[in-house]
Design a protein around this nucleic acid. Structure first.
Length: 253
DNA sequence: CCAGACGTTGTT
DNA sequence: GTCTGG
DNA sequence: CCAGACGTTGTT
DNA sequence: GTCTGG
């Protein structure tokens, strides 16, 4: 799956990959965790609500901050999104929580690495070794994501306009089976989109079959991975030590 | 019909 | 053990 | 994903 | 909102 990732790439490289007209305001993140806010790239015109803090717009795309953990339209509170941090590629088109977003609200989730924990033994006490995984050379890329704008329910008593909470933009990351390299660490991995597929993924005119075809494991030969410290386990640790290679081993990043 | 879930991972 | 919070 | 709580009353 | 389980 994918339950932590990093986004440490300097703004200029982000601007080039995603086609923003100006440098985005993106401080480095070494340890992005569920329920936290992270940047997402939305199709043109999104979001259309208030309070969503779009930062930069180009003709085809918007960069906005969103909460990790999809809040479907029927969510009763933001806590309901905490478990929806991933959606399986195999079922995303049909599951009630995801299918509308798959049809209408697809986004790119910028990253330059993700973490997977490898179980080193059996049983509940088995130690876990975290790995950082990404493209060889460390270039940034995009996860295939879905987004929703969730409107908090109105209280019943008072004037609705005065008490309506701000809408929350939320997202999830689609997962698929691990490729031949990653499966030694973990059986699943997030869907990474090649740059050439970004426009198709965001296109409102795309055929469902064409979209589904993008949800495949990224080629192993293009990827690198290395062990990192268990320091990354704690979400309060969000610094460069999280991405530092632990020892020799794995491939160079 | 109404009530309750709506999700993933991993482990057994 | 299981749920919540980050 | 992992870490940390998991509870109540009453007092500050 | 919509589907599943009872």
């Amino acid at each position: 799956m994918c339950g932590r990732y990093s986004l440490t790439t300097p703004p200029e490289a982000m601007r080039r990959l995603f086609g923003f007209e100006a440098l985005p305001n993106l401080p480095p993140r070494y340890n992005v965790a569920p329920t936290q806010e992270a940047p997402v790239v939305l199709p043109a015109g999104e979001p259309d609500g208030d309070g969503l803090r779009p930062q930069r717009t180009l003709a085809q795309r918007t960069l906005a901050m969103a909460r990790w953990g999809l809040l479907p339209p029927f969510a009763k509170s933001p806590a309901d999104g905490a478990r929806m941090i991933n959606a399986r590629a195999e079922t995303v088109a049909t599951k009630p929580a995801f299918r509308r977003a798959f049809a209408k609200r697809r986004c790119l989730v910028p990253a330059d690495g993700f973490y997977e924990w490898q179980k080193l033994g059996d049983g509940p006490k088995a130690a876990k070794q975290p790995w950082r995984i990404g493209l060889k050379g460390g270039a940034p890329f995009a996860f295939a994501g879905l987004f929703e704008t969730w409107q908090p329910p109105l209280p019943e008593d008072v004037d609705a306009e005065a008490t309506a909470g701000a809408p929350i933009l939320s997202f999830t990351i689609i997962t698929t089976t691990a490729n031949a390299a990653i499966e030694k660490i973990h059986p699943r991995m997030p869907v990474m989109l090649a740059e050439a597929d970004h426009d198709l993924w965001l296109s409102g005119a795309a055929e469902p079959a064409a979209l589904q075809a993008l949800l495949r494991p990224f080629p192993a030969e293009a990827m690198g991975y290395y062990r990192v410290s268990t320091r990354v386990n704690a979400v309060r640790n969000d610094d460069a030590e999280c991405i530092a290679p632990l020892t020799a081993g794995g491939t160079e990043d």
